[in-house]
Design a protein around this nucleic acid. Structure first.
Lengths: 237, 237
DNA sequence: GTCATGGTTCGATCATGGGCGAAGCATGGG
DNA sequence: CCCATGCTTCGCCCATGATCGAACCATGAC
């Protein structure tokens, strides 16, 4: 009897249609919540939860907790390579589609819980980090002294922020861009401040956050983009 | 619901421990019989037969009938690549061990059914093909007119050979070298003729065919090796 | 022809595990 | 504090399929 690595265990994990559907969905690159994955596989929440636990146990996917959501993503590139080999063999060409935008407006700016997400959310986060207002501290984020000064100047009441327990600022995974943006109470405070300044307002029926032309201009000035060329442009200007 | 290629079907096929064991055994590169694969997986013949039928149906392995044996081998390099990706992920490095020789004497010359197999069997087959005595004809082999002359000169009675039905000459898969050698009634006739010439004799208790030094010399002359350099040496000499 | 051997098919048994509903935690919002 | 939401756990039902023994077919040896 040939005693190789436990090939069958991994294969059996992928061998279930529901789990395979979830993995195929994760091949798009986005991290997805348990509910989304359940819908993707066409099964109920309890079943999906059990499946995901097994996939995680097998090292195929990795969880990422976020408030009351639990995102899953492929555990490593090895997993993606394995799935792609499977897809290539199983007839169809591997989809390999990237995290697609759907509604441009949603992609640009939308509400996530109660803070700003989408491209503008990513921009805000990047800008704060690049200017040293936020620092990654282990798992969480830390507001620096410079940062405290900045948000005070932006019209956010620091005292009220420090009152309650929930995490002050939290890295939040962006749904369309799949990059971090600012969540937590500070993220919420920013969104409220932006609305208070009339730069933007939430569209009632949807999650879209509509910026006014003037608001967009001021936002761009307040949170300069941090791509290399933009930074140098800022430095020059 | 993402409708990709049917990834789960293939994965489920590999996902059974018995089937995975068989596939791992086939990764060594040898074609194996149903019985060998059953032993490899530690299951009974009926179960193995059913498993192999499913693997074949899934395009993972391909059969190769040979008398009352049925050899299976991996269907394509894609399958090997897929299995290797699985092994790499599942912890251990891929074994990738090559077809191992066990007993050197067995490997060199042995009886297979009732004809000559092993390195000398492969040499005989290659030599006959290289000199145009045998030709591949679709699934089987065909003896050319030159070939008929050759075997008559070797002391084989053609008339007796043509009497009965079983295939005159048959490509037979070598067990250790995994290359073709000559089986069928013609292969048997060659072995009998070699024994009649006292070049070699079968060892009673085993499958080894022991060549005498003189027999080995004459055999080498009668069936010149066909590696490129040997062929050119023959052409020159 | 008969016999032996390698594979297959059939029928029955039984364990694994996928599925969901209901109830239980945990987290965030107010 | 209470409520809403997202996820997990529990208990149960049920289908798939892995397994083997026995009988059956096919091939080769003699």
């Amino acid at each position: 009897m040939t005693e190789g690595p436990d090939i069958s265990r991994t294969a059996a994990l992928i061998g279930d249609p529901a789990r395979a559907g979830m993995l195929a969905a994760l091949m798009r690159g986005q991290a997805l919540t348990v509910s989304e994955l359940a819908a993707e596989a066409g099964i109920g929440l309890p079943t999906a939860s059990a499946h995901l636990a097994r996939l995680e146990g097998g090292g195929l996917i990795a969880p990422r907790r976020q408030g009351r959501h639990k995102y899953f993503e492929l555990a490593s590139d090895d997993v993606a390579a394995l799935l792609e080999a499977l897809m290539r063999f199983s007839g169809g060409a591997a989809p390999t589609r990237l995290p697609g935008p759907r509604d441009p407006a949603l992609r640009q700016a939308r509400v996530c819980y109660n803070h700003l997400a989408g491209e503008r959310g990513v921009q805000l986060y990047d800008s704060l980090v690049a200017r040293g207002f936020l620092q990654a501290a282990g798992e969480g984020l830390r507001l620096t002294e410079d940062g405290a000064g900045f948000i005070a100047g932006f019209g956010i009441d620091m005292a009220a922020l420090h009152a309650a327990r929930p995490p002050l600022c939290r890295e939040c995974l962006d749904w369309s861009a799949r990059r971090s943006h600012l969540g937590g109470r500070l993220g919420r405070a920013f969104l409220l401040a932006i609305e208070a300044k009339d730069w933007a307002r939430r569209s009632p029926g949807s999650r879209v956050i509509a910026f006014t032309p003037e608001g967009a201009r001021r936002f761009a000035l307040a949170f300069p983009a941090t791509r290399a060329d933009d930074l140098s442009r800022i430095a020059r200007g």
